[in-house]
Design a protein around this nucleic acid. Structure first.
Lengths: 102, 102
DNA sequence: AAAACCTATCGTATATTTGCGATAAGAAAT
DNA sequence: ATTTCTTATCGCAAATATACGATAGGTTTT
């Protein structure tokens, strides 16, 4: 890349929406979230059993969802319970809604 | 990648939602769509003037949005008028809404 | 203390995305 | 017919994403 351009920035809302969308832009992550919607919460191991993916791969997807703020992990030794981050979930919901409503 | 796994497939809706989300997962594409929402339609050249990106880059983003079905191009020689694809827009809107509603 | 269990992280390989300039392709105007 | 205008596509380079196995880190159990 010859990105000499000084890193274009957009409005805060534009960046935020793109970030959420990016996190949702992989079928595995959608599936994980749908699973979380049903269970409300679950452990990493549960997902490893459900999906034909390596444990490290699942962990990586969870990390991205966490970075995007869509989920959060609660230490439940020796496991980690992942839940949907309600606050950010609502934010994302509203942002998508407003975006599509025009 | 050692993707020996025979290409995991998910439910149709999961794949479709991920595809929409992926297309939305870049700030430039969000910005383009927001622009289209205001103007309802516009030409490639308009966008080249608005964004500090090469014409080829804009064209590529438009291509991805078109592939995702979010926009459509109408031949208006010698230009091409891009508009939001109303039908798919509604589909996407509903899919995101249903996804976030739980 | 050692073993077992669960999850994150590292290192690596490959695929995809993003961006650019250059060029091609099409129609309109001269 | 040539030039001009507009957009798409090609070829390339760099960054990012995706996936895996191996390993590390932390707790609990034995």
């Amino acid at each position: 890349m010859k990105r000499s351009l000084e890193h274009i920035t957009y409005g805060k809302d534009t960046e935020a929406l793109a970030k959420f969308a990016k996190a949702l832009g992989h079928p595995t992550r959608i599936a994980i979230l749908k699973h979380l919607e049903n269970q409300s919460c679950c452990f990493t191991g549960d997902l490893v059993d459900v999906f034909p993916l390596a444990q490290s791969t699942i962990s990586q997807h969870l990390k991205e969802l966490k970075n995007a703020g869509l989920i959060q992990g609660e230490l439940k030794p020796p496991k980690i319970k992942y839940c949907i981050n309600q606050e950010n979930w609502q934010t994302a919901k509203t942002m998508f809604k407003d975006f599509f409503e025009r």
